[in-house]
Design a protein around this nucleic acid. Sequence first.
DNA 1: CCCGAACCTGAGCAAGCGCTTAGGGGTGGT
DNA 2: ACCACCCCTAAGCGCTTGCTCAGGTTCGGG
Lengths: 212, 212
Amino acid sequence: MSAAEETTGEDTPWGEVTPEAARRLLVAAVDAFAERGYHATTTRDIAGRAGMSPAALYIHFKTKEELLHRISKIGHERALYVLDTEADRDGTAAERLAGAVRSFVRWHAERHTTARVVQYELDALGEEHRTEIVALRRRSDAVVRRIIGEGVRDGEFDVPDVPGTTLAVLSLCIDVARWFNAQGSRTPDEVGELYADLVLRMVGARTPSGQK
Amino acid sequence: MSAAEETTGEDTPWGEVTPEAARRLLVAAVDAFAERGYHATTTRDIAGRAGMSPAALYIHFKTKEELLHRISKIGHERALYVLDTEADRDGTAAERLAGAVRSFVRWHAERHTTARVVQYELDALGEEHRTEIVALRRRSDAVVRRIIGEGVRDGEFDVPDVPGTTLAVLSLCIDVARWFNAQGSRTPDEVGELYADLVLRMVGARTPSGQK
DNA sequence: CCCGAACCTGAGCAAGCGCTTAGGGGTGGT
DNA sequence: ACCACCCCTAAGCGCTTGCTCAGGTTCGGG
């Protein structure tokens, strides 16, 4: 209940992008990148969507690539935060894994425009920026692997190949950004629930999540 | 055991592309599109990789988009053929599902450069070409859904949400094209095996595939 | 020896790209 | 009233893009 600055602004989607004009440009860029891809998007298109002239973009961002970098970084941090929050809860490994997948998938479905940019425009980034982002992604991997590992250790899960299953779980979640459509028949909550259940099956959890 | 024309040339990767120079250009385009994406690839780059001048490209293909279309079409047909072949075998639904996933995943891993173009450059296609390709993709969906549906009907599988699970299974397989790396530690066969097992768990198959 | 077809190249066009620069106009402090 | 400051635009620069076209090379048949 404080001011504008927080670790992760939950209220407004891009709250931490401080000059209001810069935020409008960034939001426009997210839409454009998600629709047509980074390389197919022109700076004129971005500026146009934000209701500004092409030159206005370069007052707030040094290059077009910097725009992508800021989107990618904030997006990854948000996704990682969502994952971490659920992973750090109390409960069995199954509960934590289901919670993590549910939230992570819900995030990818709700914010699927952002997620599409974040997940699929990674190698449009420059060398330095890409390695920075890749480091963030490895942390997501570590979080999921840890939960699965703990589940195996405690005898909750039956997983022959922990790294492989971790990869598959994350892959499944991430790909939601590709196919999810807001006009589709499934809500983000429904997809999250479905996927949490599927992942528990993948790890051979002894107790299905929602028992009814 | 006949001449050059077959439903799907299994021998040479792009055997059906008939003028030899056109095939060289097409292969170069697959590599370039997979590495940098369709929009970031220039016609000069494609021609250069094929050892020709930029103008040579336009003798064999009307536009850059036609190149992508031919790649996408042939690629989708191959992938669908692989899926169909396994789906039409004799055996239990579990055996057929495992076989289909194993082959489909192996295809995406082995031909991951092609697959990457095929799966992720879909909306770089023009309106007409895209709808044509989307129709092919729906057939893949139908194949998987049929197997899962039959498994449920015969009491082999326990699947509360058949369309949703179908979606997840295909999503999992397709995303292999994104992360698979030839220098990585897993072979296409290993990934196929792992994924076949994971999918059988997802559908709650009563008999695990490889019983040892 | 020449012909015509198949194939490819050098040079280049119009358009569009990312980005820069000079300057205009509104706002708040004093 | 005035100035410093921020924010934005019109115009355009240098370059690259997808694509074109006139012309050259190669080769089998007469």
